[in-house]
Design a protein around this nucleic acid. Sequence first.
DNA 1: AAATATGTTCATAATAACTTGAACAATCAA
DNA 2: TTGATTGTTCAAGTTATTATGAACATATTT
Lengths: 177, 177
Amino acid sequence: MRAATIENPPPESRTVRPLARPLNALEVEIIDLFVQFSHILGQPKSVAEIYGLLFAAAHPLSMEEMMERLNMSKGSTSQGLRFLRNLGAVKPVYVPGQRATHFEAVAQLRTLAMRFLRDQVLTRLDNSLDRIDHMAALVENLPSEEREQVRARVGMLQSWQKKTRKVLPVVMRTLGA
Amino acid sequence: MRAATIENPPPESRTVRPLARPLNALEVEIIDLFVQFSHILGQPKSVAEIYGLLFAAAHPLSMEEMMERLNMSKGSTSQGLRFLRNLGAVKPVYVPGQRATHFEAVAQLRTLAMRFLRDQVLTRLDNSLDRIDHMAALVENLPSEEREQVRARVGMLQSWQKKTRKVLPVVMRTLGA
DNA sequence: AAATATGTTCATAATAACTTGAACAATCAA
DNA sequence: TTGATTGTTCAAGTTATTATGAACATATTT
């Protein structure tokens, strides 16, 4: 190998975008942990990768840096960032002299849990009270030999609904301490 | 149309399995509610359909009845029942004079939530403590200008871990009342 | 034993979810 | 204004998950 190759790189290499620093061992660990969480929470891996990278970062990152370091497409990165921004898990930060918006992780468990539950759980549950009331009405049409049994079951749904409503505040209190 | 067709059905129709009673309006409502839950919990629709049908039923049902009434394949029904049995959401019931095992829903919110969290959440989280400890060690290898920032983040993960551990008992207490 | 009924397993098919990349805006710099 | 940069959207491709049905095993009845 000639020294010139190192001291005078060929012209075309000057135009090539500088390679992003590969992930270090700690970044890999942290990202991997969030990816594990993402499975439990039913979220796409790409979202977890972005959040993990920002969580492990000492400085805000631009979308392009994330794309390169995670080896992720523009589309996924953009959509993942939107999701995280809407959730409040990530916030835009102005970095002087840099045109692109940079982002940093918002690491507040209580807030994240709250918004996640609201967006992903409660919104899909909001009509269930009406639905259960409707069921209670339908029970009356049943043949008499089934009616009592099923009425009891619908009653359980109502009780489940009440108990579940009590859970959220308690969880928030526990996480917020 | 000749009356004979009605009064004397052709021989082959005698061997056809009697059509299962179609789902009534209330059953459809209840099943649909559980299917909605299944999305939130990340479980297959077939599992929710089976549980919903049993929840709405005044009597235990055999696997074959479920297949017919839900119009579901044998494989899905068998696997869905196994999942529900392992979860404790369904229990086998002996019905005199009937060869096939029948099942009924176990409608205890506290128990169901407990086992679901244990099987689907806690088992996937059990190594996270060790992983975070490992991260704390890796932090020391970082360049000094990043070290403090990232150390703080790893510290947050440890704190999240502790808070999350406190949540489960509190949830159980709230649901069990 | 033979025929029937019950239930499990698993390769394949069908479906749903995620990711990609190219086309398109919008913004900024020269 | 032109060219470069930044960012969004969405159709199409890829991957992961679920459902199906046939083959098999086991138990029950005749």
